[in-house]
Design a protein around this nucleic acid. Structure first.
Lengths: 333, 333
DNA sequence: GTTGGCAGTCGGTAGGATTGAGTGCCAGAC
DNA sequence: GTCTGGCACTCAATCCTACCGACTGCCAAC
């Protein structure tokens, strides 16, 4: 463990580096960091911190840069809580009191909000389907043989899949099938229903079967809806064009993003730094995540993706506040 | 108008510049462009082309770069038709024969396809709502006072809005209101219904009224659904980081993108070059657009956004093929 | 344990010469 | 008239070199 002064110096280095993106040296630390010792003393401490793996020198005659271990210590031990500008805090409150409309739209707007607060890319994952129960389900014919099955879930998500039937279906068969589905699914989670009891008519059973398969099938392809906002803000965070391309490319792959955030959360982390993120292309990125709860139950996940030299205190505070308010807002409706 | 040799030289300059992003000079043109004259002759022609505004010199001792006028001439007069690699052509055909599932999902996948074909960002705009008629409409209660109105349109789009009622609504009131809405809206376009005749019960009328307002309201906020794919590919196209940021930022603003493409199409263009795009941040971009038709009717729009030094022949061919096949595929279902 | 001093390292920058890709123009050939 | 080779000229890019300055590590003194 680090003694108090070393910790203080480490904090100063991390904060300065996050601010300036320049390796920071001993004299600069004494000037701006408010330390009561001489640069020489700081140098000795820096050299110890480097030996212990918290800092690294890009080259001999340069200042120090935090390692992942350094950031980790900073985040775990040195990050002051609750550092969100009052203005920003108010912006969040305003947003959630003002916002209205459909769930997906709200989540999308939330991702933009979070991105705006932090200046990094923000990710909002919708509540998973498993937990939600079916509120309504209906088959709608679009063209001969083509049918859309629409299910409204209790969390406000609307699931839809299009089906191609083997034969034409008349209006009343669709209605009958809808009713059959509704009778057995409403009030239950979508995933629960394996196979429904026959309703007597083999044609109807076929339609019902097809619809169920389609609804389940979607679960694998695109497990949860995800909204990524402010990806363009990542551009400013890196100077290597190639890094930017890789990061943006990852953010476009919704499935990867979802897996990523959930993995981090599963490991019990709220911050993943650099290689902890577990994705080569995001080696220079950190991720801040938080679950949000609807009516006391873990619902979805929100997060922020930024450079490893992220403004952790602000990002943590923003993510915490938004997740809390989003959960509260969703619990109301 | 340009004589044949000037046109040939202009074509060679544009093609070379698109390929290399370097100003191209007379000797290089003679070497790679297959011209049967000496560099000196080419120089004379180049100087005329510059005087007429088709080319420009970045500085005195540099080669020439096409101006917007130069690109325009190239696109209008010099672009060979139908230059899509057989492999790519096959990829498109495969995609549309293989793809299935729900409309939005398909459009999203289409944007990724088009982006993959061209290596630029691709935009797919869903068919507008105005033309589509309502196939089904239903109110679903989510929580006391909170109701979701779901409308399925004939083009496969599912519209949904959440409502907050002034008082609690019981299951059977919602059903009654749903039936009332369905009775008057099914078979008609969503926009058509101004006000429905009263159904006698003022409470029901209030619910119906709220639902209609919500459905119409959405029209302004988010006129059409739009899917942007492959925005990360734009990163490679520019070297100025700031340009990249601006372009990506535009692409994130769905409303702006939709307006942009529609504007271009309204002006009767299929290609907008640089300032023709009509957006300052996209001054270094070109846009290739095409409408797609479902059952003979103009439905939506697809497009590609890339740098002004875009591979126009390929982009045009890709957009044309994809729009045609997308329209055909949607006409089937 | 702390400090000031000092030698040493090395990236970044500024100045200056050089290179080379390119042009314009002109005089002569076809 | 049109094309061409030749020549003088321009100017960004490149490469050197020297220098500067921001660092460090180490040591001796406090």
């Amino acid at each position: 463990m680090l003694d108090e002064r070393k910790a203080e110096i480490l904090r100063a280095v991390v904060e300065e580096y996050i601010d300036t993106a320049q390796p920071v040296g001993s004299s600069r630390l004494v000037q701006t960091g408010g330390l009561q010792v001489s640069p020489a003393t700081v140098r000795n401490e820096l050299s110890v911190l480097e030996r212990e793996g918290y800092l690294i020198q890009p080259h001999t005659s340069a200042g120090r840069v935090p390692t992942e271990k350094g950031y980790r210590f900073f985040v775990d031990q040195l990050t002051p809580k609750g550092t969100l500008q009052p203005v920003q805090r108010q912006a969040v409150l305003d947003f959630f009191s003002r916002t209205h409309g459909e769930l997906e739209q709200m989540l999308h707007a939330t991702s933009r909000l979070l991105s705006g607060l932090t200046d990094y890319a923000a990710v909002v994952i919708s509540p998973p389907h498993e937990a939600a129960t079916v509120r309504a389900i209906q088959l709608v014919g679009l063209a001969p043989r083509f049918v859309l099955v629409v299910a409204v879930l209790s969390n406000g998500v609307v699931e839809k899949r299009s089906l191609e039937l083997t034969g034409d279906a008349e209006e009343h068969s669709l209605n009958a099938a809808s009713n059959h589905l509704a009778a057995h699914l409403v009030g239950r989670p979508l995933g629960a229903a394996g196979k429904l009891p026959s309703c007597g008519d083999p044609d109807l059973d076929a339609i019902v079967e097809t619809a169920l398969t389609a609804l389940h099938h979607g679960h694998d392809d695109e497990p949860d809806h995800v909204f990524v906002g402010g990806a363009s803000r990542m551009v400013a965070a890196f100077d290597a064009v190639d890094t930017v391309r890789q990061v943006l490319s990852i953010l476009e792959q919704q499935y990867v993003v979802v897996t990523l955030l959930k993995d981090v959360l599963d490991r019990g982390l709220s911050v993943a730094i650099g290689s902890e993120v577990g994705h080569e292309s995001l080696a220079e990125c950190s991720v801040v995540v938080a679950p949000y709860e609807v009516e006391g139950e873990a619902a979805g996940t929100i997060g922020v993706v930024g450079p490893t030299r992220m403004k952790y205190p602000q990002a943590l505070a923003a993510v915490a506040l938004v997740s809390q308010r989003l959960g509260r807002r969703l619990s109301e409706s």
